[in-house]
C-alpha cells in the first residue's frame, strides 16, 4: 500500500529559479491496483513517481510504502528501490553493459540473487517485453530505439517489484509493440498481484487498463477516481488540456443527437456491446 500525506516538492529550493512542482498531494493506493496517471505536460507526474521509490525526497509531507516511512532513518531505501520498480521516462539512456542480457541482469545482480535465478529472470523479463532470445547476446547500443526501450523496461521487470511504475513506457513505440507490452504488463499485474502505476498521454491505453485514474493538474491532484467516473467529467478534463478516449467522444456526441446510449463508455468493446443491439433494432425497423 502506498500512502502520501500532504506531499510537496520544490525544485532548486531557495535558488533564483525555484519551482514548485507538487503541492499538497495526499492519496492512498491499495495493493494490487492498476492506477492510470494522467496530466498535462509539466503537471508533476514524473516528479510524483520519482518520490515513490525515494529518488526524490519530498520537500514537505510524508510518504509510506507498506507502512514504512520513506527517507526515515530506519527504512532501508535500497530495499524500497527493489520493492518499487520504476521505469523512467525515455529510459534508453540507462543501458551500459556489453550485452543485452547483462544489462537486464544489472538489477537482479544488485539484489544479490543466485546466478541461476538471475538467468531465469532475464529470460522471463526479455520474453515479457517481446525481445527475441537471439538479441540477448548483442550489444544494447546496436539495437533500434524501440528495442532499446524494451531492454530498459525488461531491466526493471527482472527485479519483479511489488509495485511497478512506468513513466510513459510506450511513447515512441509502434502500435503493435505498444499493445503487446501493455498487455503483458496487465497480465503480470493480474497474475502476480502487482500494483501498477502507468503514466500515459494515451487516454485509450489508460481506459483499457486502469482501475482508477489519478489526474494531476498544475502540481495538484485534480481527480482520483474510478475510470468511468473520471471520463464522465470530460469537460473538466478538456479544460486541463486533457481529453477523454475517442470512443467516449463518439458515444457522447451520439447521445447528444438523441441515440439512447448510456454514459461512461470508454472502451471500444463497451461501445460495441451498447451499440450492437441498437443497430439490430434499427436494422429491423429499416427492413
Amino acid at each position: 500500500m502506498i500512502k502520501l500525506e500532504q506531499v510537496g516538492y520544490v525544485y532548486m529550493q531557495g535558488g533564483p529559479f525555484e519551482k514548485t512542482a507538487l503541492n499538497n498531494v495526499s492519496l492512498t493506493i491499495n495493493r494490487g491496483e492498476f492506477i492510470g496517471l494522467i496530466g498535462h505536460t509539466g503537471s508533476g507526474k514524473s516528479t510524483l513517481i520519482q518520490m515513490l521509490n525515494g529518488l526524490l525526497k519530498p520537500t514537505s509531507g510524508k510518504i509510506f510504502i507498506d507502512g514504512k516511512e520513506l527517507n526515515s532513518k530506519d527504512t532501508d531505501m535500497r530495499q524500497i528501490r527493489f520493492d518499487v520498480g520504476l521505469v523512467m521516462q525515455y529510459p534508453e539512456y540507462q543501458l551500459f553493459e556489453e550485452t543485452v542480457a547483462k544489462d537486464i541482469a544489472f538489477g537482479p545482480t544488485n539484489m544479490g540473487l543466485s546466478p541461476e535465478e538471475i538467468e531465469e529472470r532475464v529470460k522471463f523479463a526479455a520474453n515479457m517485453v517481446g525481445l527475441k532470445p537471439a538479441l540477448l547476446d548483442k550489444s544494447p547500443f546496436d539495437l533500434s530505439g524501440g528495442q532499446k526501450r524494451r531492454v530498459a523496461i525488461a531491466g526493471v521487470l527482472a527485479m519483479e517489484p511489488k509495485v511497478l511504475i512506468l513513466d510513459e513506457p510506450t511513447a515512441g513505440l509502434d502500435p503493435a509493440g505498444r499493445d503487446e507490452i501493455l498487455f503483458k504488463i496487465k497480465d503480470m499485474h493480474e497474475r502476480m498481484d502487482m500494483t501498477v502505476i502507468l503514466v500515459s498521454h494515451s487516454m485509450e491505453d489508460i481506459a483499457k487498463l486502469a482501475d482508477r485514474i489519478l489526474v494531476m493538474n498544475q502540481g495538484e491532484v485534480a481527480m482520483f477516481d474510478r475510470t468511468d467516473a473520471v471520463f464522465r467529467r470530460g469537460e473538466e478534463l478538456t479544460r486541463m488540456g486533457l481529453n477523454v478516449p475517442q470512443i467516449t467522444r463518439i458515444t457522447d456526441s451520439l447521445r447528444k443527437q438523441g441515440v439512447p446510449i448510456r454514459e461512461g463508455i470508454y472502451t471500444v468493446e463497451d461501445a460495441l456491446n451498447e451499440l450492437a443491439p441498437l443497430l439490430r433494432q434499427e436494422g429491423a425497423r429499416l427492413c
Binding site: R78, F82, P91
Partner: peptide
C-alpha cells in the same frame, strides 16, 4: 541534468 537522470535510473535498479 543527464548525469542526474542516469544516476536516478541506475539507483532505481539498485546501484549503490
Amino acid at each position: 541534468e543527464e548525469t542526474d537522470k542516469i544516476i536516478k535510473a541506475q539507483s532505481a535498479r539498485g546501484a549503490d
